[in-house]
């Protein structure tokens, strides 16, 4: 079966999704690298500049953005390993099975990292405290 994906001539199957996600996450990562090099340049200027930049990066918006970064890196890395194994001829027959392993492992790692990175202080205010039942410890 062939479905129309804009700008492509491929049919939809797990490999297509893997390929598309690899390109999207790759594009996001080179965008991040460019900004990262600029940010790091500022971090290295002086201890004051470092603290100022780190304060900005601790803002909840950047913390949530970092979860997105983690997701892109984890998926791109794991799917990259899958591509390498397929290209080496080791895993060509298992490429579809490996795709689901990539998705599963990415999900687990992103949930674990996401819990660590999420700006939980967002819930540290009166509105949210009012929503938590009083009988909860």
């Amino acid at each position: 079966m062939r479905l129309d994906i804009p700008f492509t001539k491929y049919a939809w199957h797990s490999g297509t999704i893997a390929w598309l996600l690899h390109r999207i996450t790759g594009g996001a990562l080179i965008f991040y690298l460019t900004i990262h090099v600029w940010v790091t340049h500022h971090l290295g200027k002086s201890p004051e500049a470092f603290d100022q930049m780190m304060k900005l990066l601790m803002h909840p918006a950047f913390r949530i953005g970092e979860i997105g970064l983690l997701a892109a890196i984890v998926y791109h890395s794991l799917n990259g390993v899958r591509i390498l194994l397929v290209d080496l001829g080791i895993g060509a027959r298992h490429q579809e099975q490996m795709f689901w392993w990539v998705i599963g492992l990415s999900f687990v790692l992103c949930v674990l990292g996401g819990i660590e990175l999420f700006p939980w202080q967002l819930f540290d205010n009166e509105i949210f405290k009012g929503l938590i039942p009083s009988w909860l410890p």
């Binding site: 390109r23 790759g26 594009g27 990562l29 080179i30 690298l33």
Partner: peptide
């Protein structure tokens, strides 16, 4: 990264 962009 940039070679990847070129591949796309």
């Amino acid at each position: 990264g940039l070679n990847g962009v070129w591949m796309i």
